[in-house]
Design a protein around this nucleic acid. Structure first.
Lengths: 199, 199
DNA sequence: AATATACCGTAACGGTGGTAATATGGATCG
DNA sequence: CGATCCATATTACCACCGTTACGGTATATT
């Protein structure tokens, strides 16, 4: 009998490949991420990745899931820091924006509109749910502590859409770089959070 | 001397090619838009389009500009209809959402995050400016007539970002299809317009 | 009619993601 | 210990992509 890949072998390879793929993606953009260079950086032949992933699409979905996961990490970390609920809630919003701008490649990957029909990977599904849950957690805190009133789920979605809208307009170049982004962002956050604040 | 292409010849060909390219793009998506089939549908050889466009990127920018232009048309048409300023303003918002959903391919094209570095075509620049101007025109009306208060430019940008955020979350699959989109959209519009309404 | 040249088509190149056939090498058994 | 086997890895190859190179064609001027 030949050597069989153990579960952990497969998982390790997948994990390592996702790291390399993400690095390549960040370094050279969507067009620069190709199977040959990815395989070369992994130190294997061009076809080996196909033993661990169905196709390139599945790899894209996998690194998308990782991006969602790291995104959720950042938001949770911001929420976990000490301070009053409004301070912590604000920290989550700032973490959102910082991630979107500093790791814009990954943010683009997460919310890309014209992706070639992504593979319905369970890990991607889970990562999206987790990121979304984190988006409502700080709202839940604000409501529980009496700073906000309303349905946390709905409020979270509205705040999310607001941040996402401003950020994506910026990333697609629709909002100029001469401070317009900052002004619109601050105003949007002021209006949205003000709408749910208890008086 | 050989026959020289007149200005109108070039413009006509470009226009016709943009129509065909848009149709092909809508029909088969970003991956389905390739130079060979585009040329075939134009009834010319694969290389002829390169006489009128630098490369595929420039074609993409051109049809993007056309999409922005049609988008602006829809918004202006909505604003031009009879009714009270709030009704007309609301009509613009509805037209925005309808365009984004019904012509989602074109909306994706317009605001795609991971585009391969678009060509800085002047017509694209102009079309973007026009679409953006339309986004603030109805706000200007509302402010002038006393329904809104504040800076029309800023308010327009915030409203735009809000709509854009909800719509793109929907298009990227982040907002479920079981009515969640409609609820979040209605809530976002309620909050945003409410924030600027005079009491 | 001869010529020059803007225009268009054909052929081909390098590169892509992906399939099929082949080679490799460690685990198992005689 | 050596023969065998089969999961794994590699090589060769394919169809397609955007694009370059270049030769053919047709037309306006001489």
């Amino acid at each position: 009998m030949p050597r069989n890949l153990s579960e952990t072998d497969v998982a390790d390879f997948r994990e390592k490949l996702c790291e390399v793929a993400t690095a390549l993606f960040v370094e050279k953009g969507p067009e620069g991420l190709n199977m040959r260079e990815l395989a070369a950086r992994m130190g294997v032949s061009a076809m080996t990745p196909y033993r661990y992933f169905k196709d390139k699409n599945e790899i894209l979905s996998a690194i998308r899931a990782r991006a969602f996961s790291r995104f959720a990490d950042q938001l949770e970390k911001a929420l976990a820091q000490p301070g009053t609920p409004p301070e912590r809630s604000r920290a989550v919003g700032l973490a959102y924006v910082r991630f979107a701008l500093e790791q814009s490649c990954c943010y683009r990957l997460m919310f890309d509109l014209s992706r070639p029909r992504l593979a319905p990977l369970p890990e991607l599904f889970a990562a999206e749910r987790r990121a979304r849950a984190t988006m409502t957690d700080h709202v839940r805190l604000m409501v529980r502590e009496g700073y906000f009133h309303g349905d946390p789920e709905l409020i979270g979605s509205v705040l999310w859409a607001g941040l996402h809208g401003v950020v994506t307009l910026r990333l697609s170049g629709a909002l100029g770089e001469d401070g317009e982004f900052e002004v619109v962002l601050a105003e949007a956050m002021r209006v949205l959070s003000g709408a749910y604040r208890t008086r």
